[in-house]
Amino acid sequence: MTKLSCSASNCANNNKKYCCISSIDVTGNSAVNSEETCCSSFREKNDAFTNCTTEPNPSVNIACKAENCIHNSDKKCYAESIHIAGQSAYNDVETECSTFSCGY
């Protein structure tokens, strides 16, 4: 499984820079750079809501729709590790897969 780190600290799924869900979805069907990708699993954290009922998980399944990425094979990410960026994100389009690497 791919190791995932995440700087989207305002995400309800983020705990200690790791995800608390078993899989995420990265979108960006025709992306040619990381800014054109995003983590569609992002959910804004607020005082009343968090998904972090489990321990942070550094290894998660990553469904990837960024077809031009060299790490994508059959809509799954096969990079050894990735980073989801979005330090001050308040919605999914303010995040990105900073590991994205265009292969076309």
Rank of each mutant, 00 (worst) to 15 (best):
90 Y>S: 15
74 D>G: 06
50 T>W: 06
81 S>E: 05
62 I>Y: 06
47 D>L: 08
76 K>C: 03
82 I>G: 00
80 E>A: 07
57 N>Y: 12
92 D>C: 05
30 S>W: 10
30 S>P: 06
91 N>H: 15
89 A>N: 04
49 F>T: 03
91 N>A: 10
31 A>V: 02
20 C>W: 03
21 I>G: 01
38 C>A: 15
63 A>I: 15
33 N>S: 13
79 A>H: 00
61 N>H: 12
53 T>H: 10
28 G>H: 03
85 A>H: 02
42 F>K: 01
24 I>E: 02
64 C>N: 04
39 C>F: 01
44 E>K: 15
91 N>Q: 07
52 C>H: 03
52 C>G: 11
35 E>I: 07
74 D>V: 13
57 N>T: 05
47 D>K: 10
51 N>I: 03
80 E>P: 11
90 Y>I: 15
82 I>N: 00
94 E>N: 01
55 E>T: 06
22 S>T: 08
70 I>K: 14
80 E>G: 10
44 E>R: 08
77 C>V: 00
44 E>W: 14
63 A>R: 14
89 A>C: 09
35 E>V: 00
81 S>C: 02
81 S>V: 04
53 T>N: 14
55 E>G: 03
62 I>N: 03
52 C>Y: 08
55 E>H: 07
31 A>L: 03
46 N>S: 07
20 C>I: 00
58 P>H: 04
28 G>F: 08
70 I>D: 02
50 T>S: 15
70 I>T: 09
37 T>E: 06
75 K>R: 12
86 G>C: 02
59 S>Y: 14
48 A>K: 12
93 V>F: 08
66 A>K: 04
59 S>R: 11
58 P>K: 06
34 S>V: 02
93 V>R: 10
41 S>A: 11
49 F>D: 03
22 S>W: 15
88 S>H: 15
61 N>E: 12
42 F>W: 05
82 I>K: 00
33 N>M: 05
53 T>L: 10
52 C>M: 01
41 S>K: 01
92 D>A: 14
20 C>L: 04
69 C>Q: 07
78 Y>I: 04
54 T>V: 12
54 T>K: 11
65 K>A: 10
56 P>G: 11
48 A>Y: 13
27 T>N: 11
84 I>A: 02
61 N>F: 10
30 S>E: 05
58 P>W: 06
29 N>R: 12
20 C>G: 11
70 I>S: 08
40 S>F: 11
33 N>I: 04
31 A>G: 00
52 C>F: 04
42 F>H: 10
23 S>Q: 13
45 K>L: 12
76 K>S: 12
36 E>F: 08
76 K>F: 04
60 V>I: 14
78 Y>F: 13
70 I>A: 05
47 D>E: 05
39 C>M: 03
83 H>F: 05
94 E>D: 13
44 E>D: 13
87 Q>G: 12
37 T>R: 06
36 E>S: 08
60 V>W: 08
73 S>Y: 08
51 N>Q: 11
76 K>A: 10
60 V>Q: 07
29 N>A: 07
44 E>M: 14
93 V>D: 15
35 E>K: 14
30 S>F: 09
46 N>L: 02
53 T>E: 14
